[in-house]
Write a protein that binds this DNA or RNA. Structure first.
Lengths: 264, 264
DNA sequence: GCAAAAGTGTTGCGAGTACACCCATGA
DNA sequence: TCATGGGTGTACTCGCAACACTTTTGC
């Protein structure tokens, strides 16, 4: 039985010495997701060095000596997005990837996160010329950063294809039984915008009246902003404006039924 | 932007050198769960060394240079339980715990797993004197290993209280929408035994006829063993015997309704 | 007026709960 | 024959999908 002791060898005497090994590097990788122009997008950076020079990859980096993986992920997120306030953004630990060959140079154990951010380029329709809340930039480095449609994010460096796929699966599943969808929305949003989150991530169309009822029936999911109303696409009746509520879990869940709605 | 390059410093030039730091140790921790005498049990080991000498802890240990966290977890599981065939057992990666102070001696980043194993001490009722499929032992070490009821597993070393709680939460949730429950059962089981898994983990009583229908209605969840029948508690009608089916996800899910069944 | 988007009302089907009932076995 | 657990049948209910309809805006 190996154990957490500091004796320099494991308890069954096989001579395990943790300092004798090539050190393990511990990193975080971030799948920063957003919804843009009705499609799921991922933030990618272009690699400057080998291996995988010139290939696109997820942003990420090493843990500092005195920070947890969550803190490192939030720090990286702030650096990558240039957004001042990342404290409110949802960070979701996906899983840890530790296969020996995943980095050709050394053992790199990577803790992967999904981060959900509101659309960095809101449609900029009339009456809402808000400054874009975040714009990717490549740090002080020459490498560029870019929002890429989920379907075009293939052939990434390392095992990042798999991380991106895992992020999408996890987020899609969590929309069903948590209040996660509001993390894709700006602080104030309409039910139509919230419905677009579900439709985009799930790839299905939902019945608007039923969606509305289910969302409003879930206690603490959203709460109305009194008196506020906003036009969403320039036409039609102005929609009531809502904020994210205090709940995190969603009861009852919003199941994606195999036959709900018409195909997108 | 920090990144996975091997240049010895991060891309924004702050002079990060991964070899200059105290190396990170990477370990796995296992919450080995089973159902025994109608209660959820956790496998604990007694620590021999400081810190936390004499305290109970989860089994676990360091990653070897050429194995992934999953492989390390399965190796530890085999060593701890003494079970010859751990290939079929369900291993579930929970999350990674990386807070700087979680081990007082050095930075230890730990990937936590939940392992679900069948009852190591089947009731041994008449007609079924199968050998106990696994018995904990303390490796070659003096430290002992013991099955402990979930409710009594408090005051563990390190942050293992939290890991155990996370394991229970995850397993409880996954019973709803995956076929995970069969992982607690021996290869062949009755629907009554499967129902006890749900009732024990959820702490609620379920209506037997309805449970039966839901399980059989889920395609690929269980499949009958033709002609087999078994007495479960010595009395009553022999129950039909089932095997785990090929499905992993559960459609439709088996929701724990707030008002289903009478309280346990 | 027309199109487009928000929001309300209503109906019918079906899933699922609750419960009554029969079956097979050991003591 | 009684207690115990397995297994079947059924009725009532509530959720919810489907769709018709009204309201408010821009053009």
């Amino acid at each position: 039985m190996r154990d957490h002791d500091g004796s320099g060898h494991d308890a069954d005497g096989r001579g395990y010495d943790k300092y004798a090994f090539e050190p393990f590097a511990v990193t975080v990788d971030l799948a920063v997701l957003t919804l843009r122009a009705g499609a799921l997008h991922v933030l990618l950076v272009e690699r400057g060095q080998e291996p995988y020079a010139g290939r696109w990859a997820l942003p990420g980096g090493f843990l500092l000596p005195e920070e947890s993986a969550e803190e490192a992920a939030r720090r990286e997120l702030a650096e990558e997005t240039g957004l001042a306030d990342v404290t409110g953004l949802h960070l979701e630990q996906l899983r840890t990837y530790s296969e020996p060959g995943r980095d050709p140079r050394m053992r790199v154990v990577s803790v992967a996160f999904a981060a959900l951010v509101p659309d960095p380029h809101p449609d900029s329709v009339r009456g809402d010329p808000r400054p874009a809340p975040l714009e990717p930039h490549g740090g002080g480095d020459a490498a560029q950063a870019r929002w890429t449609p989920y379907d075009a994010a293939r052939g990434l460096a390392f095992d990042h294809d798999r991380i991106v796929a895992d992020a999408r699966t996890r987020v899609g599943a969590k929309l069903e039984y948590t209040c996660l969808a509001t993390a894709f929305c700006p602080p104030e949003f309409t039910l139509g915008e919230l419905q677009q989150v579900y439709e985009t991530v799930w790839g299905t169309a939902l019945d608007r009246p039923n969606f509305r009822r289910k969302v409003l029936a879930a206690p603490g999911f959203v709460e109305p902003v009194p008196g506020a109303a906003r036009l969403t696409s320039g036409r039609g009746k102005p929609a009531a404006v809502y904020r994210a509520g205090p709940a995190t879990a969603l009861h009852p869940p919003l199941l994606r039924s195999p036959r709900e709605g018409r195909p997108a």
